[in-house]
Write a protein that binds this DNA or RNA. Structure first.
Lengths: 201, 201
DNA sequence: AAATGCGCCTACCGATCGGTAGGTTGTGTT
DNA sequence: AACACAACCTACCGATCGGTAGGCGCATTT
């Protein structure tokens, strides 16, 4: 029932890497949060890079769980996509954390890219693409829409909004922000439905 | 005609902060790129924070120049917005650099936010909002669209695409990427025009 | 009872971090 | 000729970085 030290380290690493990035996070910080010495951490993860790699792996798994849940909801590609986008839009700590980690990785990957094997998010992206392609083949979606571009617009809108959240909350009053949040979701749904051949009311 | 050392330092700092972030960049790296000692840099900028602040200031200025150029193109808010989005979409080193710096700042700002004064990008955001509001008042844009949300969708799509560029080029062939790029722009224009009351062909 | 191995520790390493102190140029200004 | 000042420099600081070496306690195995 109680988490192992290793799991706690992994979770805190996820938190800190998402909040301060790879370079901004020291393994000392991570270890201290779990009340373990730095060497206690290095016992479980041979290097900072390996720790980071495992965190990314965990994030990729979380995204694939979203895909799995979407599949269980319906066979309809539109509803599946909608489910995933809704899950990603949830403004909860743990949910946002994955998105921030992803954005950090996109920015940093430029340097790490060569050393990295197959990119950890490719499967997730492929799943989303497949959903759109399926929708098009079933005649539900407009054939003229490029699957990857369509997905990227949605991901961009969602993730950019989430990574701006702290800043937005500072710039605007709570009421203004609430309004923005609602309208953001509404616009997102409009964008999603634009791909439909026969819009559902 | 020739750039001062100070300007060269500022430019290289911009490059490195955009590429590796605040924590991932050392003032030593910046100085070395300009063939100056670290203390040479510290002579011009009293601290790393001050250097970073000046870089941000420069980025904010570049964005405001975009607004200025858009204003000179036309009085029509739609054409103004279109101009800005096109300028931001340019896939050029210097152009992308500003976007990456902005995204980094959004992610890191959470920690620096309290200490930061008025956020350096607020004016730019306000300008964009004003353009949409003007368009609505002139009857060109749909009144039902929330200005900030509308802008954020556009910024999100553009910036997320740009920060993914290196990764995308790795994941897909040059041909696939070219296709994605074209469709990305097409979708962006569709999204922009959705706000129009009377779509222009 | 001896041996093994996991989990975690203290102690320490060289490298690098941002930053300070103080000196040395060269280039006007007076 | 004397001075002032900007534009650098070398030398150095304490702190922190990621990582290594080796030891201690405890549970399990043999």
């Amino acid at each position: 029932m109680s988490k192992t030290t290793r799991d706690k380290l992994l979770e805190q690493a996820h938190v800190l890497f998402a909040r301060k990035g790879f370079y901004g996070t020291s393994i000392n910080d991570v270890a201290a949060e779990v009340s373990v010495s730095k060497q206690g951490l290095l016992h479980h993860f041979p290097s900072k890079e390996k720790l980071y790699a495992e965190v990314l792996k965990g994030a990729a798994d979380q995204l694939m769980v979203m895909v799995e849940q979407a599949r269980q909801i319906s066979d309809n590609p539109q509803l599946q996509l909608q489910s995933i986008m809704q899950q990603m839009s949830r403004e909860e700590e743990e949910s946002i954390r994955v998105i921030l980690l992803l954005c950090r990785e996109l920015l940093d990957n430029r340097d790490r890219a060569e050393t990295a094997q197959q990119w950890f998010l490719k499967p997730f992206l492929t799943e989303l693409e497949t959903m759109v392609i399926n929708g098009q083949q079933q005649g539900l979606f407009d054939d003229g829409v490029h699957p990857l571009s369509y997905i990227y617009q949605l991901l961009g809108a969602i993730q950019y909004y989430l990574m701006s959240l702290p800043t937005l909350q500072q710039l605007y009053t709570a009421k203004q922000h609430k309004e923005h949040q609602q309208q953001h979701i509404r616009l997102l749904e409009l964008t999603m439905q634009r791909v439909l051949v026969d819009p559902v009311s």
